[in-house]
Design a protein around this nucleic acid. Structure first.
Lengths: 236, 236
DNA sequence: CTCTACTGTATGCGAGGTACACAGTTAGGG
DNA sequence: CCCTAACTGTGTACCTCGCATACAGTAGAG
């Protein structure tokens, strides 16, 4: 299968290991430029609007010319992800693990808000991680380096926090303005509410659930409290 | 836009509100049968393998015949999701909230493991929720009904736990057997490990991070500990 | 018996990803 | 100095997919 070769080429691109040829015409484009243009499109029109033809048209180039640089659509998306994740939160050695993880989570949420398509792009398979994506992992592990947690536990902690950030971002991406969805769902609950007593009671309680910045805080506080308990248990 | 009409029709399908015609030939297929076949395909070959033509071919039917039943691909996927979520965890009123949430999370994880494509299908947009999906939410809220948390907090708690389950499922779906990925990533760390000191140290520590059932437990314990702390604070 | 609503089919369009062959361009080797 | 190999961008073509539309066959209602 050609997947191995493709993977090889994608890894080389992501990690800057590609060999630059000397002969022939100078390339006028670059993988990074293509990816950045694709990111612009995805930011404003969504990931679905990113097609080879669309990106090529932004340069007034032919569709096929892109294949000289990025190998395929999958590779392009992986590049987009890694470039969108550049400049991860800088480790601040003076803060304790909790504060560092909080800023980490906040930075992650902001990144997801700036590039909502990241949520859909990272979903697919076990992607090869690029340098920037790895840096985020590195930063999270580094924040926990002073704690007595084991390596797998640190990894698990990263998993939990990252998952929470992703989830809040997903919720934020859809909240607000979706009046039609609200109407549809409340119509459904009007007709079938008897099957969901707790839910109906919750919705009619008047305390509406507005997704906002505090959505991150509540869950994050839970997770970090639990983590602190683990750490305290370990230190005894 | 036709989106409203489509939505209407999808809602009717999901919630069994469709009117069944009396005249004309009896339908030989049904939306549910089509969705179940699509689920079988997605279970074994992934969501990407589910196309109208592929599903229709399973019945030895024409592609277009499916449109008599499901309205479109998006509607089919929504049906698939809701059917895959049928029989949510039964509420056990005798257990306390923590035990109930633990079984809820466990059941969710098993569901995601049986239908890994659920992870990719639920990602897209703010989908209309079907009866089964709503039942999962109902069950989670019901588990928390005895606690002094506010309605938004219960909702947030659901969000955190659900996100964690999804994340663990995602990790599990890709772990193991992916020897090529492992080789690729360790090759990368061999060449660029100096940029990721904490990560390299973690990997060379010998404590390998094997994703398993305990991955759910660690994070879940953190979250539930934090939730318990919130509840205790509220009860004082 | 006929009309009408309904089912399944046949055909075709447009969009998207990509393989392939080709023309134009440039650096290094003889 | 030029020629050849390597490389870039292009044109064409093919496949798959979602879906619109028009059509033929079928069966209940009156």
């Amino acid at each position: 299968m050609t997947a191995a070769g493709d993977n090889q080429r994608t890894v080389a691109l992501l990690w800057g290991e590609a060999i630059t040829p000397t002969r022939g015409p100078k390339p006028t484009l670059s993988a990074a430029r293509i990816a950045r243009t694709a990111i612009d499109i995805a930011d404003t029109e969504g990931l679905a609007a990113v097609s080879m033809q669309r990106v090529a048209a932004s340069f007034e180039y032919t569709t096929m010319s892109l294949y000289r640089y990025v190998g395929g659509k999958a590779a392009l998306v992986e590049l987009m992800v890694d470039i969108a994740l550049e400049s991860p939160p800088a480790p601040d050695a003076s803060a304790d693990w909790r504060a560092r993880l909080e800023t980490w989570a906040q930075a992650g949420l902001e990144r997801y808000r700036r590039h909502p398509w990241l949520l859909g792009a990272a979903t697919a398979e076990h992607r090869v991680m690029g340098p920037h994506e790895l840096s985020w992992l590195e930063a999270a592990l580094d924040a926990l380096s002073g704690t007595p947690l084991t390596v797998p536990e640190k990894h698990d902690a990263f998993l939990v926090i990252n998952g929470h950030v992703r989830n809040v971002a997903q919720e934020l991406a859809h909240s607000g303005g979706d009046a039609e969805w609200n109407a549809t769902m409340s119509g459904i609950l009007d007709r079938h509410g008897d099957r969901f007593p707790t839910l109906t009671a919750a919705l009619s309680s008047g305390e509406h659930h507005t997704v906002g910045a505090d959505s991150l805080q509540f869950g994050l506080a839970c997770i970090l409290d639990g983590l602190a308990a683990q750490i305290a248990r370990r230190q005894r």
